[in-house]
């Protein structure tokens, strides 16, 4: 059971969240080549170690989050809103 700290709600169980895939993949520009769009949908690295990925607090506040997690140990290093242009939480760190 992962414990993910939602920056809005605090530390919650993994089952409140749904996994949203690789956050290092950038959506291509509208006029990018078909190869770029193909890669965007179908090509993924499978890194061992630190990895940035999206999680959706779907059974909570419904914020999409960028989580940095170690794929080998499940250690979570950070949990942030997906964009700096979205409203940002007043951070209050919890330890549990």
């Amino acid at each position: 059971m992962l414990r993910i700290e939602c920056p809005w709600c605090g530390v919650r169980n993994e089952d409140e969240f749904s996994y949203g895939g690789d956050a290092t993949v950038e959506r291509p520009a509208d006029d990018a080549s078909q190869d770029d769009w193909y890669d965007y949908v179908y090509t993924r690295a499978n890194p061992a170690g630190r990895h940035r990925e999206y999680w959706h607090h779907i059974n909570g506040c419904r914020a999409w989050l960028t989580v940095e997690r170690d794929t080998m140990t499940h250690e979570i290093f950070s949990t942030e809103p997906t964009s700096a242009s979205l409203p940002q939480p007043q951070r209050k760190t919890g330890s549990l």
Binding site: Y54, H56, A63, T82, S83
Partner: peptide, 9 residues
Amino acid sequence: ERYHQVEWP
């Protein structure tokens, strides 16, 4: 919500 928060904030 994903497109709103992730791609087109």
